[in-house]
Structure formats: structure tokens, C-alpha cells
Design a binder for these strands. Structure first.
Lengths: 342, 342
DNA sequence: CGTTAGCACTCACTTAGGTCGAGTGCTAAT
DNA sequence: ATTAGCACTCGACCTAAGTGAGTGCTAACG
């Protein structure tokens, strides 16, 4: 069923109002809005229809109406000719992110902070999945007699380093030359190809079998398999400022969500792929988010890898602003992380 | 004024009860406790005295009494013949921490988690101050044409790495030999001595002036000066489970505290030095903590560096348990971080 | 004289009833 | 089709009364 012009306008007016006030909207309020030339009574009739259609709900009989998830969905699907950001805002974003050295972690962190700050909602940023990044260099640095630090450099910058144990008689020079060899072999391959390459190379290399075995194990565990997702959260407490979270129980539920990053990551990943995704209220699978909306965007690193940006806010969030924000952030981050060294 | 035996016993009984229930304690409740052979009336008289002395307070006339900060202070100062942990608990702590590779960051993180989990309060762990650690090795690894990753290894393990820019014509071998040179020069010196050493070495090394200048700058900025403290928080939302935080405003204040890690770090640092410190209620400088207690402990890394553990809970926290917990944790972490490679 | 029983008193908390007002749905007039 | 009018609903807010845990004081007791 398609809404006629007037119903649509009224619905929009209600949503717009509710987004700001978080209070049920009554017919009088709507009729007073400029551009609406009808009396409260007429509005009431329409509102009644809209309620029947599932776009509005009444918290109780004699209260105004509140938009339903379905209403937001409609709103979002249609009204989103995303509002442009002002030049100042764009500049601010770029500056803030560009100040980072370009190391993945830093950029991610900065992105989360600025997203939370600019939207006043909670933000989540997932680091790019690294399996499909191309290796540029492998280097092991001795730390003490039994341990070395292994660093893998990819096209997107440094991948989180890992400690591995080395045979006690291994010299620093030896380690260096093995690193060189590894770099030679693995260069330009993706991390997910490491296993096959090792299988091939291993045959010729019986001498350093133990060390190389260790290297591969670490790469597999830490880098290839779905390791604990690298995920950063900004503005955790931002949502506490909104009246829908004045209930301590809800707040607790919400905050606890962030202590289990894996679940969060899973959720975001499922949303991934699309350029922009919006999950409104019940559309979220995680219970604690069912009175929130989640907006996600994907950014790319090079040609293969990608990560996810997310903003979590009340269902009555300012979708326009958030979406345009995310679109722009996605661009900037992609440029930042792919740029220069591809 | 020293409390007589009986007053003391009654005060202790009240505190013990209040720690568990978080409700004002009445005379009847106290008199019913085993070991207390007096009628409510007698207790009342004593309680009245204790109130006059500043150890108890009444939320309102016809409520029971609540211990004051002063009472906790007395309690803490005297009753703390710290209760031993059970063998299982000790084992659990050790296991949990020992599973970590020994990299500082991991240990810190693990410590925060287990502290929060075991106490059910919020925990804070500050990484060891690194200025006074001795350098074991300096290594630069090329990342791309213009950038290298600099790694400084100290006696406590790896110190957070930093990106520095390098001249475009610098070869990988060249970088390696410079690293070797740096290691030679800086080995066994503390990070705070770097500046003088550089001043001395610089004269001889006009060729790589720019690179070395960069190295020193990074070391100074990131490693020596009071860089943004490396600090980790565990169980952020734990306190929300206690009734004293059922007020959303207080909760918000409290949680916001953790978004500014520098302030937290400052606070903890000020407490540092002592083996165990306890700040009760108003004794805390930060306003948001004035109805909390903060227990801190210091751990050592090698002979010079040290870091801080902290637990934040309601003033009615279980001091005994927390203190013994922290004492043991301090030991374990010190052993963990100093051990093996000193 | 320290201890205790007794009693009047206080005061937060709960419950019930009462008013207020924003908002509704329906009906009848325009 | 629109709107004015009106009875109705129901949460929010206020007040009053009742309840009970706890107190302080006083007088009696061993």
C-alpha cells in the first residue's frame, strides 16, 4: 500500500518532530507546522489511518503518536538524498584524520573518535580484514635470546606484530637473512595464500624448519584465521545523554554490549558489503540494540580488503546527517589507507 | 580520641553489614549479630556517640546509620591483616596472566581484566613508565619508500613502536646497519639518557643527520616525555551493578571519567610510589570519584620502572579482599614483566 | 552505674484518591 | 472533504493517610 501525498507529509512531519523532541507528537503540533494547512481534526483522521497501517504507535491512549520502525524505514528509504556536509565539516574531518601517521590503528581510532564527536552517537570502527591484503615485507627483530618480534608489512601499512620464539643459537644476522628470504617468497601474495606457499617452500628448507613452522603458525593464528577482530569504539557514553537511555537497566545492557567486541564485530560484518546499511530497531539481531538504529558504511583498502564504520544511536537518530557523514568518512578513510603506497 | 573496645566492635559490625547490604544499619540489626551481647537500646547509645565522633551518619532522622569516610579509614587502617587468597584463586590469577606472551601490553590488559573480574569492581592498570627502562636493542624496519617502523626493545619487552620517515634513497641494508649502530650506542642506557647520548654521537655522524634527528625526535616525543599514558581499563560497567550508581547522572559522570585517560593516569600516578594506597571517598581529588574508593598498588619492572594497578569501587567496598588481591597481583605482574630477560 | 525495657516521635515510603491537561475518536455542521 | 465541538481516556502530578523501621529519652532494673 502506497501512502498518498498528504499522509506522507504528515508522517514526515511527525518523524521530524520526534527526532528532535523524543516526545509523542500530537495532532495540534503537526497542524501548527508551517506547510501543513489542515486542522488538528483532519490530522487526527490521517494519523489514525497511519496507525492502522503500522507507521505510528501510541504509547497510551491519550498520548500523541510515535513513529514505528516501519516509519523510519520508509523515511530512510525515501528522504535520503543525503544532505551535503558543510565545507568546514569536511575540512575538520580531513584534518583530524590526516594528522595521523597513516598507521592503520591510529586512523581507525581517529575515525571512531571523530564519528562519535560529529554525530553525538556511539561509533564503532572495524579494522580492515587483512587476509586479502598483499604482503610487502616480513621482518623479524630479536627481542631476547628466545624471542623475536615478527612484523608483517602490507600495502595498508603495518599489521599488528606478533612475538615468536626462536632457537637460542640463532644470530641476529641469521634472523635478518631469513627475514629477507621470507619477504622474497611472500611478497605480493595475500595473507590467505601463505599456507600454500609455505607448503611449497618448506621442502627445500629443512634447516630452519622449527623457526619457519613457528612463523607460519603465528601467521595463521593471528593474521589469517578470524582473529579477535580489531575493533574500536568511540563515544561509548554518548547515548546516555538521550532520554531513551535514562533507564539504568537499558543503559547497562547497552554498555555491556561493548565489552564483548566479538559479538559487535560479527554484527557489523554481517552488515558489511553494502556501501551503506541501515538497521532500524527490531531489524537488529542483537537484543540490546533493538531500540537503536545502526548505520554502517564500508571503506576499502586497496582493491581487496575492506573494513566497516558504524554509528549506533536511538531509532529517532538524524539519519540524514549520519549517512552523509559516513559516506564522507568512508571516502576519506579509504583514500587515507589505500593512498600513497599501493 | 581512641574508641573503646565496644564502640569499635559495633562500628565494625555496622561497616561489615553495610558493605554487604548498602542499606543504613539500625540498632536492632547490630544487636542481633552474634558476638554482640547487647540490646538495641545500648547499641543506640553507642551509635549516638559514634555519630558525634564522626564515624557514622544518618541519611535522615529515622533511618539507620551509614559509615562515614572516616569510619572506613579507621576500618582500613586497622582491620587489614589482609585475608589470604585461596590457593585456587591464586592459581587462577597466575594461569590467566601467564598465558600471555609476556608482551607488556598483553599483560597489562590481562591484569585489568582479571582484576575487574575477581573484584567485581572497575579496574585500571597503568603501563610501566618507560623512561627508566634500559634499552636492549633499536631496530628500524622499512615499511615503504618513505617510512620505516622503529622498534625499541627494552628489558621489559617491546616498547610501542613508532613510524618515522626516512630519506627516499635509503636502502634496506643501510637502515639495518644504522639500526645496529644505534643499538650499539644506546644499549644498556635508559631512555631518559637518550638525549645526551645523541648530542655526543651526533657530532661524528653528519651523514645521516636527518634520519637520526628523526629518530631522536620520535624517541623524545613518544618515549621519553610524558606521552599519553598507556592505560587500560577493565570492567567499566561493573559499578553500574551497585545501587549507589543507580542514578543515571552519577553513572554518566563516572563513565565519562574513563574517556579522559590522561586525568585518570594523573590521579593514579599521584598515588604511586607506595606499595598500597587507599583513597576513601572525599580523599579523592577527582570529583566524580568522591563517593568511590580507589585502591592502588605499585608493581615493578626490573629495578627502575614501575606501573600502577588500581581498583575503583564504592566506598563500602570489600577492602580486605581487594587489598589482598592487589598485593598478589602486583607480585605476579612484577615477576612476569621483570622475569626471564633481566 | 551500666544496661535495658518502654514509649513517643520522626520520616521515608507506599497507596489511594483527586485534579489537570494533552490528546484522542466520534459526530454533526459547514 | 473538512472542521468545530465535545465527551472521553489516561498519564503526570499533587495531597493525605497509613505503615514501619528506626531513633532519643526516660525510668526501672540487677
Amino acid at each position: 500500500m502506497v501512502l498518498d501525498e498528504r499522509k506522507y507529509m504528515i508522517l514526515k512531519a511527525i518523524i521530524d518532530d520526534y527526532i528532535i523532541t523524543a516526545m509523542p507528537v500530537g495532532s495540534r503540533t503537526v497542524s501548527r507546522k508551517k506547510g501543513v494547512g489542515f486542522s488538528p481534526a483532519t490530522i487526527r483522521n490521517e494519523m489514525s489511518d497511519l496507525e492502522e497501517l503500522g507507521y505510528l504507535a501510541q504509547p497510551h491512549t491519550s498520548a500523541g503518536r510515535v513513529p514505528s520502525d516501519k516509519a523510519y524505514r520508509l523515511y530512510v528509504d525515501s528522504l535520503l538524498n543525503s544532505e551535503e556536509l558543510t565545507v568546514e565539516e569536511k575540512k575538520r574531518i580531513e584534518d583530524y584524520i590526516a594528522r595521523r601517521s597513516g598507521q592503520v590503528e591510529d586512523v581507525i581510532r581517529a575515525a571512531a573518535d571523530i564519528l562519535a564527536d560529529a554525530t553525538q552517537y556511539t561509533s564503532v570502527v572495524v579494522a580492515p580484514r587483512i587476509q586479502s591484503l598483499r604482503i610487502k615485507r616480513v621482518q623479524m627483530v630479536p627481542v631476547d635470546e628466545n624471542t623475536a618480534l615478527m612484523i608483517v608489512v602490507t600495502s595498508a601499512g603495518i599489521i599488528k606484530d606478533a612475538l615468536i620464539s626462536i632457537p637460542p643459537d640463532m644470530s641476529s644476522e641469521n634472523l635478518y637473512s631469513i627475514s629477507e628470504m621470507l619477504t622474497r617468497e611472500l611478497k605480493d601474495h595475500t595473507l590467505s595464500e601463505v599456507r600454500q606457499i609455505f607448503a611449497r617452500v618448506f621442502r627445500d628448507m629443512s634447516m630452519n624448519r622449527r623457526l619457519l613452522g613457528g612463523v607460519m603458525k603465528v601467521m595463521e593464528e593471528k593474521l589469517v584465521e578470524d582473529a579477535p577482530e580489531d575493533i574500536v569504539i568511540g563515544g561509548t557514553t554518548k547515548l546516555l545523554n538521550y532520554p531513551e537511555y535514562s533507564d539504568i537497566e537499558k543503559a547497562k545492557n547497552f554498555l555491556t554490549l561493548f565489552e564483548n567486541k566479538d559479538r559487535l564485530a560479527g554484527m557489523l560484518k554481517r552488515a558489511g558489503g553494502m556501501e551503506i546499511t541501515i538497521r532500524i530497531g527490531r531489524e537488529n539481531e542483537i537484543e540490546a540494540l533493538q531500540n537503536c538504529s545502526l548505520v554502517t558504511a564500508t571503506y576499502r583498502v586497496g582493491n581487496n580488503a575492506s573494513g566497516t564504520l558504524g554509528v549506533i544511536g536511538p531509532t529517532r537518530m538524524n539519519y540524514r546527517r549520519v549517512v552523509s557523514m559516513m559516506e564522507y568518512m568512508g571516502e576519506v578513510i579509504s583514500k587515507m589507507l589505500s593512498g600513497g603506497n599501493e
